[in-house]
Design a protein around this nucleic acid. Structure first.
Lengths: 197, 197
DNA sequence: GTCTATAGAGTGATAGAC
DNA sequence: GTCTATCACTCTATAGAC
């Protein structure tokens, strides 16, 4: 997608039509305003994302599933990269999307909290003090959501493996002995780099 | 500044001239291209930032000074907010700035690493495993740099206190007993919220 | 539905009078 | 130096032929 490569605001309806092999008039026939196109894309994004990150009350992943969620999230993030790179611009331009997305983000973080709490009950994570889980969920969300942007801003490639390592490293201090063993097995299973525990 | 409020790309040279009480022609007389204006602003930003975050080999802050650096950084960040909110756009538009900024970011993270290592030698931070410091420095950098953006993207106000809490919470698991005591004193000294250790 | 053509507004940048 | 006026371009969106 052209948006992902050049940034949302650098791709006009005309250029987009051109890369899609359509005439400008044809594209604006299906999406009368650019906003209509963006909303349609956003709805599609939200639909696919709901398959990757379950609703807050249904997220009960073991470590393996959490790792799988990270990978699935990254894959979808790459598909709708422009939403992650240019989100603030898009929210500024289309308040309708902004309002929806505020709620979406809240649910994403809530879902992460549920997953972490489930792993406390599994004896994988240790709840050292009040607020740990909320802090950890927010931290993981920030890392995952801004990963592609921080890489580009630094002039680096963004890689799934680096993102995974960074996320797991944040969970690391809160793992129980049992949890550390479980997580290390998962990371060694598929990653060439070993995370020293 | 108009850039900070409405976003870099939503403020044209004409609008900017208007808010400054200048004619469009006068503004483009002093800055022939918009790029010239951006580079001048970037140079000013870099100059002021060098006073807040010292060079990598000179950063030896105790916890109190680190907390002070966080506050000073936030203040400067608010002053040049558009660089932090719209950095990717600006880098895409002006590769000259991008190249300089890549190096700048590397130095910022290096400077953080130096500071953390110094606090290991002070017995404040515990280096649990190899890579901890690099990970922590990167994590703090991401949090600090993307804090205003993550707040806006979520529809929240961005607050210094929330950013401070989040950064210190990331350091928390790596503090020694002595370190925990020192940090808690600093945070209780000035913050209404208490960070439970 | 799909096309070409174009309206209408906004942009960065320049020209030339004072 | 500072101004007004304007060029050349790009953008979103529309009109109307086929």
């Amino acid at each position: 997608m052209a948006f992902n490569q050049h940034g949302y605001s650098n791709v006009s309806m005309q250029k987009l039509a051109e890369t899609m092999g359509l005439s400008p008039g044809n594209l604006t026939y299906h999406f009368r305003k650019k906003e209509d196109l963006m909303i349609a894309l956003y709805d599609l994004f939200r639909e696919e994302m709901s398959l990757v990150i379950p609703p807050p009350d249904q997220n009960t992943p073991d470590s393996f599933k959490l790792d799988y969620q990270i990978k699935s999230f990254y894959k979808l993030q790459q598909r709708f990269l422009f939403f992650y790179l240019d989100l603030l611009e898009i929210e500024r331009a289309y308040p309708v999307i902004a309002e929806q997305h505020y709620v979406h983000i809240q649910n994403q973080i809530k879902s992460l909290e549920t997953g972490l709490n489930y792993n406390i009950s599994r004896g994988i994570i240790e709840d050292k003090d009040s607020g740990t889980i909320q802090h950890l969920a927010q931290q993981i969300w920030i890392t995952a959501v801004f990963w592609p942007r921080q890489a580009r801003v630094r002039g680096l490639e963004d890689s799934l493996d680096d993102m995974r390592q960074t996320i797991w490293r944040q969970i690391l201090p809160y793992l129980t002995v049992k949890g550390a063993k479980e997580v290390n097995e998962i990371l060694n299973l598929e990653s060439t780099q070993q995370l020293t525990l």
